[in-house]
Design a protein around this nucleic acid. Structure first.
Length: 291
DNA sequence: GCGCAT
DNA sequence: GCGCA
């Protein structure tokens, strides 16, 4: 492992809030306060102070800079959001140290988010860890076994019966089935090729898979394929969006038409920063409910 | 609008 | 959340 330091931008970065904001599910804090986790084949152990990240890793700093979005001018991004929504001053000020992550492996995002449907973080996290235990060991560090997330092929080998006994419920059948279906399409390579397509096309091809609806497709598009205009509309965002923009839909069900209307409105306001604006609203709502 | 699993 | 009635 190598050690290096990355200076933090003025806008700041709260690692704890970022890594527990529902984008990734297998990061944890070590006894000394450092955050430890992986992204694809990279292992990161990160300790932050107000000016810099002190990092130990198997890989080059650029990979972490990309994962955390530190190569973007995040201050400018938030200024553009404020230009569209000047009343969001407090909302942005309280959450601009939460970063939008860019995961290297879209298949990991898909298989992790299959665990999130109709579920809570307290159960999602152990489920994703259970899946991850089938992945190849990268290294051991202070008792922590850092694993690469399993390949689609490895997940496709897992039996429904095994997942059932591990408490995956009705997702026990769908997880290996989706892994097989993606393999039939071309697997990890096909997945990466979606990054070169327009957002709408990538999203439409993802919802072709049984058990992957618009919401999961948008999570994969945003966190795994890095389409900034993607807006995953879950219960948190639906609540925020109806309050702010569609008061006539407050308390009503989220239908396909309404799902598209919310995303389109966010895209018309924020363009390719709609996903970042989504994360502000999503995380605000999530933190409120945690209290 | 409900069932699905915990 | 997704899929189907």
């Amino acid at each position: 492992m190598r050690s290096f330091e990355i200076p933090l931008p003025k806008v700041g970065l709260d690692l704890g809030r970022t890594l527990t904001s529902g984008q990734v599910f297998r990061w944890h804090q070590l006894p000394d306060g450092a955050w430890a986790g992986t992204d694809d084949d990279c292992v990161w152990i990160i300790k932050a102070d107000s000016e810099r990240l002190k990092v130990q890793s198997t890989h080059h700093p650029d990979r972490l800079i990309h994962f955390l979005g530190l190569d973007r001018d995040r201050e400018a991004d938030f200024q553009r959001i404020l230009a569209s929504e000047p009343t969001w001053t407090a909302r942005v000020a309280h959450r601009k140290n939460v970063a939008l992550l860019r995961c290297q492996n879209p298949a990991e995002v898909l298989l992790s988010f299959l665990c999130t449907a109709n579920n809570h973080l307290s159960r999602i996290v152990p489920m994703v860890h259970y899946l991850a235990s089938r992945g190849d060991l990268i290294l051991s560090y202070q008792g922590w076994e850092a694993r690469k997330f399993p390949t689609l092929h490895q997940i496709a080998q897992v039996t429904e019966a095994e997942l059932r006994s591990a408490g995956f419920g009705y997702r026990s059948a769908t997880i290996p089935l989706v892994a097989k279906a993606v393999l039939d399409q071309g697997g990890e390579e096909w997945f990466h090729s979606l990054r070169g397509k327009p957002y709408e096309e990538a999203s439409e091809s993802l919802i072709q898979f049984r058990s992957v609806g618009r919401k999961l497709a948008d999570c994969i598009c945003l966190y795994g394929l890095h389409f900034g205009e993607s807006v995953p509309v879950d219960t948190h965002l639906w609540q925020a969006a109806t309050t702010l923009y569609f008061p006539e839909w407050q308390g009503k069900a989220l239908t396909e038409t309404r799902y598209k209307a919310v995303g389109n409105l966010m895209r018309s306001k924020f363009g390719c920063l709609a996903g970042l604006a989504h994360h502000l609203l999503f995380f605000e709502n999530l933190e409120k409910r945690r209290k």
